[in-house]
Design a protein around this nucleic acid. Structure first.
Lengths: 224, 224, 224, 224
DNA sequence: AATGAATGAGGGTTCATTCAT
DNA sequence: CATGAATGAACCCTCATTCAT
């Protein structure tokens, strides 16, 4: 009966190995980009032979797809959980959303950079698959963030405005910090990046600015 | 200015051919990414032979570097011109800056996407070269936008705050719309994109939201 | 003969398993050729794991060698038995030989095709082994068929001629039908071949033509 | 006007190079089989770089297809020319056909062996293409040889019989000698084969036996 | 004996770059 | 300058074989 829940040793090991490969791939892809990483390199970092990679993933592109998808889903679910919470105060929920997302962004810069380095001319089936899934997630996200804005507007907490535009503005503001950071980091040696500091930067400094600008705007008069 | 006259026909033609190659390369790179475009393809679209490309650019990477750099410089100069103008009203200048940048973003999505699809493991010399130049421009830009913010703060037009943070917030807000758009466009066939509509979208709708949110913020109370 | 009794259950099972592997291999090799069949495929069809195949055969090439050899020996022995029979009428014996061989050919097209799709660059030892054995059999076969022809010639039943040439002609005539058939079947999906019909075709129609042409020739005058 | 007939130097060189590649490939394939020859080997023997091979042929399989097809067409056309001649004496024409085919067989053993070493699991489009062409040729050949037999039968020169069976018997008899030879040659080192002697063997000895057996049959009585 | 995950050498193919014309 | 055929290093992927369980 409960064997269904309990994976066999074999199966458990397989999953661990799969994760090890994905972890190695993420590090390398994020550092050097999809086309500058060889399967051999991934294998070496994951401490397997090339052939083993192909036991887990049909091709380099499938590996990439799995990587993007699995990490994105985690990211997505965390945010959707916040948006799905039933909180009485929409502003508080928006704040929580900001804090959560900024925390994630600072922690997962690697996968975000990867996410924006699409592989065109990818096997069409893979691309379609990946896109379908991502589109579904983006739509859900947009809808729910927009709904939260609408709740805030209807509660008179946020200015009358198109809730979707507000959602885009808030999300764009946060994304903007990520790309500002990525731009800055182009020149840096990836091994020199202080990930702890980075996380803190996003979770504290950047998050604070996002909240202030988003809520209060920049004008002095509005602060009055 | 007047150097144009001193160019011989030969030299003028050379420059035109160079531009044709860069234009062809930009279209292809933006559509398919650096690694999915071959020198042969670029040559064909530019209506030259492969060998000819190498008369103008040492390597594919040098071509890419020139492309990024020249387009970025144009982009950069346009914005710097706005920031360098001596206007009496800082808010008006910020507004002009927003309108100008949003106009540029909508018009040059291709090169922006390319700019963020870096080529790592690029020949180190090239990378260093490119980075040095880009860093110089970014620094200049940040400094000048920050200075504008400071002028606005000192004039009591914008809330007391770190001018650099304000600069990052404004710029991030605009960048955020670009990446929101890019994310949306992943699934689309590049040939189906309506560039006129896109330009208008950025110059009008998105620009409006940027201005509203940046200046007034989202809170209902602040609008009072 | 009686060794069969002395085999332990273990040993008997081993032999059965070995046969199952060889059967699976023959089907696959005949269908797709040596280089298009993987050990994994053979293992799956034989319902064993890959590792098990290596308990029975040192390598893929050894497996192939065993397959060719064992099947060829069966084929060979059947024909030799006919040639070794002590029959009074050489013509009758030739007829029996034709019928037997045509029956075998129609029944074992698969192994024949395989036999002609040699693996060159095979491990030299294997090749030498296989060749030595095959050469021995071919020599025995040729000698005995030739002897039969000689008996027929000496009995005045067959035209004075080189017995070896007559042997080659008869055997060639039969082989010719096989390759005529193989040529025809290239375009066909192997799963669509009607093996029963094929067997009948060889045993009846083709065999009849072989007998007529071999014995009587084509000329009208000779039939008179 | 006549430029159409006159190939440019470039084009002429291209054709020569193409032929050199096909020649190198034939030698190697015939010696070692499709799967035991690497593109690198072919390139080396043809004195080109691997990349160059791909300028002429899309893939190894396309190269193989071109090889088979072009050589087969030559072979085919030579025979069809004989069958299409308008000769008064059908028997004379059959004799000429035998001599021509035996001459070709002895001269082109390599391509024949290759022709029977099909590549299954070949790209389906290639296979279909190749098969369609081969089937068309086989059909034409069979029809024309059969028609010749019919003419001979109607002229009372050959026994009343199914012309198609007679055609198959004659062709099979000749093919049989080829496979008899191939079987014999398995064990030999390909470099040791005396091609001149081989050609003579087919054109003289074997051809003589074919004619005798096919026309007169083996029976002593028929020779009377 | 049986299993099947792991190995890694080897082959097909691509494409940036060169160079003779 | 312009051309494009030729080059060959490098990469993705396959699959025969091994070995710990």
């Amino acid at each position: 009966m409960f064997e269904q829940r309990t994976l066999s040793r074999r199966e458990r090991e397989r999953l661990i190995h799969r994760q090890e490969i994905l972890d190695a791939a993420l590090e390398l892809f994020a550092q050097k980009g999809f086309y500058n990483v060889t399967m051999k390199e991934i294998a070496e970092r994951a401490e397997f032979a090339v052939g083993t990679l192909y036991k887990f993933f049909q091709s380099k592109q499938h590996l990439y797809k799995s990587l993007i998808l699995e990490r994105t889903i985690h990211f997505h679910n965390t945010l959707i959980n916040v948006l799905d919470e039933e909180m009485d105060d929409p502003l508080e929920q928006i704040e929580k959303f900001i804090m959560t997302k900024m925390g994630l962004l600072g922690k997962h810069i690697a996968i975000i950079r990867l996410y924006f380095t699409e592989i065109y001319r990818v096997n069409p089936t893979i691309k379609a698959d990946l896109e379908a899934e991502l589109t579904r997630m983006r739509r859900e996200f947009r809808t729910k963030l927009s709904a939260l804005m609408e709740r805030a507007i209807n509660a008179g907490l946020i200015r009358r405005s198109d809730p979707m535009h507000m959602a885009m503005a808030l999300d764009g503001l946060m994304k903007g910090f990520v790309f500002g950071y990525l731009e800055e980091s182009f020149g840096k040696d990836p091994s020199e990046i202080d990930y702890e500091k980075l996380e803190k930067l996003f979770a504290e400094d950047y998050a604070k600015t996002v909240r202030e600008v988003f809520f209060k705007g920049a004008l002095a008069s509005t602060a009055a």
